[in-house]
Amino acid sequence: MLELLTSFFLIVGGLFALIGSIGMARFPELFMRLHGPTKATTLGVGGILIASMLHFSSREAGLSLHELLIAMFLMITAPVSAHLIARSMIHLRGGIDQIRKKSGEQAEQKET
């Protein structure tokens, strides 16, 4: 029973990590690419960590909870690095007003 649950979390975790990376490879623009790794990859690694917790708790004497540390650390740091990457991109493109103007022009071109 526990083995079944472990396998379930492993498969879900692997799939979500893969989906996050697919999103990063597939989206056409940087700000959209940020969405994949910050969400899907975090849950993917979280699933694998839960599976590891279940596995080692069932194998050895006593609970094994130290994987929680990695999960918590990733949950705290993933948004921070995404925020920093977005800020550096805005900085490199010369401010948010420039980006808004450019995307507005592109939308007009699409319509005409």
């Binding site: 700000f31 940020l34 975090t42 925020h83 977005a86």
Partner: peptide, 11 residues
């Protein structure tokens, strides 16, 4: 906000 659906904080 960064961890919830479809939104990432940028600045």
């Amino acid at each position: 906000i960064s961890l919830t659906p479809g939104t990432v904080s940028a600045d």
